[in-house]
Design a protein around this nucleic acid. Structure first.
Length: 239
DNA sequence: AGCACA
């Protein structure tokens, strides 16, 4: 696909409310350059996808390469260049031509309304503050998702497992893992407080409000497949 | 799976 300053992202978790999804996408992609807009919609045909419109093609290219397969709300992102130019950029180009509005067929309306009734409940968004906004520069320096990790054996620390407590010990992270990346993952679970990445080791600690919530997160994320051959290893932290 | 522009 030809390079484009707009990226097409799919395989997104469609249980996540679009507004929070867009915010989170922005957090992650903004590390690579200026973003003009992010478009995501929740209709049947369009959910699970988003368009990230960058100011520069180079930013699109870099983020495409580095974030391919990035675990985002529990699903690896699939990223490609968008097939066509976004309206905003065409407008700026002067190449924009009005496109005929989509006719909504009665069939589609019917589907839409029936589906509302049977729609699965949305995952409630956890009311934890977003990851502290690190400076543009520092994220840029530190983010880097390398999909070709070789898996390192998680030691588990050896010895007897720690008692359940509110802090999780996270092992087997790719060396380029960042706080932003990890908070994406852990903040989906209620009670999330913060995640601390330990520099130089492929390890982090994730705090929840109590050990019960930590346990839920541990169950949910245990062995999470960061890549086909790298799985997260979670245990309670030793104190 | 699905490439939009509210």
């Amino acid at each position: 696909m030809a390079a484009n300053q707009t990226l097409y992202v799919n395989n997104l978790n469609d249980k996540i409310n679009v507004e929070t999804l867009k915010k989170s996408l922005r957090e992650v992609f903004a590390a690579f350059g200026g973003i003009i807009d992010i478009i995501a919609m929740k209709s049947l045909k369009r959910r699970g996808q988003a368009w990230i419109i960058f100011k520069e093609v180079s930013a699109a290219t870099n983020s495409l390469k580095s974030l391919q397969g990035f675990p985002f709300y529990n699903k690896p992102m699939r990223i490609a260049y968008a097939k066509t130019k976004s309206d905003v950029v065409a407008k700026a180009d002067g190449t924009y031509v009005e496109r005929p509005k989509k006719i909504v067929k009665r069939e589609d309306l019917r589907k839409k309304t029936t589906n509302v009734a049977h729609a699965p409940p949305e995952i409630k968004t956890v009311s934890t503050p977003a990851a502290p906004a690190a400076s543009q520069k520092s994220i840029q320096d530190r983010i880097g998702w390398n999909p070709n990790q070789t898996s390192t054996k998680a030691s588990g620390g050896g010895g007897k497992p720690a008692e359940p407590n509110r802090t999780l010990f996270v092992e087997n992270l790719p060396p380029e893992a960042t706080d932003t990346m990890l908070s994406m993952l852990f903040r989906q679970y209620p009670g999330f407080q913060e995640v601390r990445l330990i520099p130089g080791r492929n390890v982090a600690f994730a705090d929840y409000q109590n050990e019960y919530q930590a346990g839920m997160a541990m169950q949910g994320l245990q062995s999470f497949e960061m890549t086909p051959d790298v799985r997260l290893q979670l245990s309670y932290a030793r104190k």
